[in-house]
Nucleic acid binder design. Structure first.
Length: 416
DNA sequence: CCTCCACTGGAAACCTAGGCTC
DNA sequence: GAGCCTAGGTTTCCAGTGGAGG
């Protein structure tokens, strides 16, 4: 009964408490506002490039690049949205397909998404990629629509499998279409992406180029102000909190997405505390929370063996905080596997997993040479030991291993 | 200058789980 | 059901290597 009363209190506090948000969805990154400050030029440019499609003409392929959170996706979606409306109005047969290549992951799945957009279902595995491409082409030929394809985060596609065959095929697909065409809009976060590409693909893909520069702190401020008006109740957001969010995000290569996250999380924190104004302090806490949530999410969703490797690295970190080497970590890893009765993977594979964890920033690994004593990777934890304990204490696999003291460490070296 | 450690990281083969066509 | 295909994870094999110690 006591608990139910306490819960009532929580609900009452929420209901009677001062409202912070008017509409928090405005701060989500998939929200496309009616007005994109400081991107008017880009919108005009892209609109101008794509406009001929309304009269059925083939448009130039466009290559858009800039860092994360510079408004590439927002501008592209904004323009295409308007274009789609206009096309309906004037009866132009245009279809639009948006694919995020990082989420799709492979050539095959991107292609499957494209097929789906022209109304054809493709099984998630089983067909030869060439076969899927043929079907895609047939569907286009038998339909009567022009297709504008947005390939967002296109760099993820090529880098992951060192293979630009899909892009090559797509850039040449118009040669074998009759009466219809496909326009490509590639979006890349990576400015060096171009160097990975086959020059033929590149020249075809970037008939037009649009570059997005990072937002400056002032520009971020304008963007946030614009959204905050719709997102927050009048007076619920202090100007200093707004400025701090803009400044922090400007420090992170002008990432508007980050700025919006900061504002949203800060608002949620204030709401939960029952405060009626979002302050700088809330924004600072929000920054910590975002980082912690990111780490937590990544650690939780790690595959089995990566978790064991990470716990191994944590144990070695307690033992010798200045860092360990591949051989030692592999020894501990093998022992941990034995404890929970799992067949260990080979050292070659673990070496690869360590590299993956390094890329994610969960471990720091760099190659060092100890001369006579060989060449190896020096490995340190990239997240705090505290976070590992907290996040893994409830994990069914990693939890029981956290406090384990491996025998291979007890023998020679004494704990520091 | 040479040796040789303890690996690194590339390449290719292998395995599994799915699904196609005939 | 046989004989293909794919993705994705893993194993096997191995040439290559920075630099301390001889």
């Amino acid at each position: 009964l006591g608990e139910s009363n306490a819960l009532d209190g929580v609900f009452d506090k929420f209901l009677s408490g001062v409202k912070i948000f008017l509409n928090r969805n405005v701060l989500r990154h998939d929200y496309i506002p009616d007005n994109l400050p400081h991107r008017g030029e880009h919108i005009h440019r892209l609109g101008g490039i794509l406009a001929p499609s309304l009269s059925g003409s083939k448009v130039s392929n466009v290559f858009i690049y800039g860092k994360t959170g510079t408004g590439k996706t927002a501008v592209a979606k904004f323009v295409l949205d308007r274009l789609e409306h206009k096309a309906k109005e004037v009866g132009a047969p245009i279809k639009i397909c948006y694919v995020n290549c990082r989420f799709a992951g492979t050539n095959y799945r991107v292609l499957a998404d494209l097929c789906r957009s022209v109304g054809m279902d493709i099984p998630f595995t089983g067909l030869a990629t060439g076969e899927v491409l043929d079907r895609f082409r047939n569907a286009l030929n038998s339909g009567h629509s022009m297709l504008l394809v947005v390939l967002d985060e296109i760099d993820a596609l090529v880098k992951r499998q060192e293979d630009d065959s899909l892009l090559y095929e797509l850039t040449r697909i118009n040669e074998r279409l009759h009466g219809v065409w496909v326009g490509l809009i590639g979006i890349s976060n990576d400015l060096h992406f171009k160097e990975f590409l086959d020059p033929r693909v590149l020249s075809c893909l970037s008939e037009e180029e649009v570059v997005f520069k990072p937002y400056l702190a002032d520009e971020l401020y304008d963007i946030l102000l614009d959204r905050a008006k719709k997102a927050f109740v009048d007076g619920a957001l202090s100007d200093s909190a707004l400025r701090l969010s803009a400044a922090l995000a400007a420090g992170e290569h002008g990432d508007a997405r980050r700025a919006l996250d900061l504002l949203r999380v800060a608002g949620e924190l204030a709401e939960r505390e029952g405060d009626n104004v979002v302050t700088e302090e809330h924004v600072r806490l929000a920054q910590q929370k975002i980082e912690h949530d990111r780490v937590s999410e990544v650690l939780r969703s790690l595959p089995l063996h990566s978790k064991i490797v990470l716990v191994g690295s944590y144990i070695l970190n307690n033992h010798s905080p200045q860092g360990s080497v591949t051989g030692d970590l592999y020894e501990v890893y093998q022992e941990l596997c034995r404890v929970i009765n799992i067949e260990p993977l080979t050292q070659r594979r673990i070496s690869g997993l360590i590299n993956e964890l390094d890329v994610m920033g969960i471990l720091n690994a760099r190659v060092v040479s100890f001369g006579r004593y060989g060449r190896t990777k020096k490995i340190r934890l990239g997240v705090s030991a505290k976070d590992i304990i907290q996040i893994y204490s409830e994990d069914s696999v990693a939890g029981p291993l956290i406090g384990y003291v491996p025998k291979c460490l007890q023998k020679h070296r004494s704990p520091a």
